[in-house]
Design a protein around this nucleic acid. Structure first.
Lengths: 116, 116
DNA sequence: TACCTACATTGATGGCTGTCAATATTGGCG
DNA sequence: CGCCAATATTGACAGCCATCAATGTAGGTA
């Protein structure tokens, strides 16, 4: 089970920088909001859930269209957003496209919340 | 440091129900997406960051308007969304309104990701 | 009572987003 | 080569959202 090390990104200044971040800069916030934008849609959460559950390795689009009751282009669109957010990994094998969870991506998102 | 026990919600059927959740129902997904909708805005992330950093107890709106470079109504709007998402707690004291992190709310959001 | 301050609400507006139909692309197969 | 199947892309459209100016509300003070 993942225990989420949450190790700080190598900012080991041991003496004088306790005020770490001056409360999230504008750019930094914009960047981190992208991941949550990708997570802020019910259908995308369901996609992640299905793909994680079917951890037999990967899932193709055809298996994702039906349970969500969405058109194929819409599913493809959501998958693209999740891939661009770094949450999913796409692998084309022949005519099919297989999707799998990007390792550690969800943990990273959780880490953003923990470290604010 | 929060280590997030991640204990399953008591579904200890030891023999025949390994398919645990049928991959997030539509309603459940809609519900969980609400939290991430609230987190999917850079300015709201910055608000959370500022309020968490100033953990001297609570922060009033006047201290939040300036660093974000937003109008007062806009900040008030964002704060309302965060409160309604259960992420912040509002306490009116006289003319001022003080905001503080809802205890455990961020951990809960992280837990949603961990348990999908 | 009257006034000021801190915050919330309303209304309007421009921009983003989820959705689908239609079309394009790409790989396998005969 | 020609056709079909699986995905991706495009275009269009409705609905939501972040933002601000203007206004409302309520507590404190004189």
């Amino acid at each position: 089970m993942n225990l989420l090390p949450i190790l700080e990104p190598a900012t080991d200044e041991a003496c004088c920088a306790p005020a770490a971040a001056p409360a999230l800069g504008a750019e930094e916030a914009k960047q981190k909001a992208l991941v949550f934008k990708a997570l802020a849609d019910p259908n995308r959460l369901r996609l992640l859930s299905i793909i994680k559950a079917a951890s037999s390795g990967a899932t193709c689009v055809c298996d994702l269209t039906e349970p969500l009751d969405l058109s194929q282009p819409t599913v493809s669109h959501h998958l693209k957003i999740l891939v661009e957010a770094g949450l999913l990994h796409r692998e084309k094998r022949g005519t099919w496209a297989y999707f799998s969870l990007a390792p550690g991506a969800l943990d990273d998102a959780a880490g953003i919340l923990a470290n604010l």
